[in-house]
Simulated assay, not measured.
Amino acid sequence: MATFNKGILGGFSGKVGTVVGANWRGKDIMRSLPKPSQKEPTEKQLLQQEKFKLAVAFLQPLKTIQSQYFGSSSGVKSRVNLATSYTINEAIEVLKGVPELMYNKVLITRGELTGFQNAILSTQAGGVLDLEWEDNSTQGNASATDQVSLVAYCKELKDFQIFEGIVMRSDLMVSVTLPNFCIGKSVEVWAFLNNEKQTFASNSFYLGEHTVL
Score class of each variant (00 low, 15 high):
residue 210 H to V: 13
residue 9 L to R: 11
residue 2 A to Y: 04
residue 169 R to H: 09
residue 172 L to D: 04
residue 71 G to A: 03
residue 83 A to I: 15
residue 136 N to G: 11
residue 71 G to R: 06
residue 20 V to A: 00
residue 43 E to K: 04
residue 78 S to W: 05
residue 144 A to L: 02
residue 177 T to N: 03
residue 174 V to L: 10
residue 209 E to H: 12
residue 52 F to V: 04
residue 199 T to V: 08
residue 167 V to D: 12
residue 133 W to K: 04
residue 180 N to D: 13
residue 14 G to N: 02
residue 94 V to Y: 00
residue 38 Q to I: 14
residue 4 F to G: 07
residue 184 G to T: 06
residue 73 S to I: 10
residue 200 F to H: 10
residue 158 K to D: 10
residue 201 A to R: 08
residue 61 P to K: 00
residue 100 E to N: 10
residue 62 L to W: 09
residue 128 V to T: 06
residue 55 A to D: 00
residue 147 Q to Y: 08
residue 145 T to N: 14
residue 99 P to I: 10
residue 48 Q to M: 11
residue 70 F to W: 06
residue 16 V to Y: 07
residue 43 E to V: 03
residue 157 L to I: 15
residue 65 I to E: 14
residue 124 Q to L: 05
residue 42 T to R: 04
residue 165 G to N: 15
residue 4 F to M: 05
residue 169 R to F: 03
residue 42 T to K: 03
residue 122 S to E: 05
residue 195 N to M: 13
residue 33 L to D: 02
residue 134 E to C: 00
residue 34 P to F: 09
residue 62 L to P: 08
residue 82 L to Y: 00
residue 11 G to M: 03
residue 213 L to W: 10
residue 156 E to Q: 15
residue 170 S to Y: 09
residue 37 S to K: 10
residue 117 Q to Y: 02
residue 133 W to L: 03
residue 136 N to V: 13
residue 151 V to P: 15
residue 113 L to E: 12
residue 67 S to H: 06
residue 157 L to F: 12
residue 59 L to R: 07
residue 57 A to P: 02
residue 52 F to K: 12
residue 20 V to R: 01
residue 122 S to F: 02
residue 198 Q to N: 09
residue 92 I to D: 00
residue 189 V to T: 11
residue 59 L to C: 15
residue 154 C to R: 15
residue 131 L to T: 04
residue 155 K to Y: 12
residue 147 Q to G: 12
residue 113 L to K: 09
residue 146 D to E: 12
residue 213 L to N: 10
residue 21 G to M: 09
residue 59 L to V: 12
residue 145 T to V: 12
residue 101 L to C: 05
residue 63 K to R: 06
residue 125 A to Y: 02
residue 68 Q to A: 06
residue 7 G to F: 02
residue 188 E to K: 15
residue 74 S to E: 06
residue 182 C to A: 06
residue 210 H to D: 04
residue 42 T to M: 06
residue 119 A to C: 13
residue 156 E to P: 13
residue 36 P to V: 05
residue 13 S to R: 11
residue 116 F to C: 07
residue 112 E to K: 04
residue 2 A to Q: 01
residue 164 E to I: 11
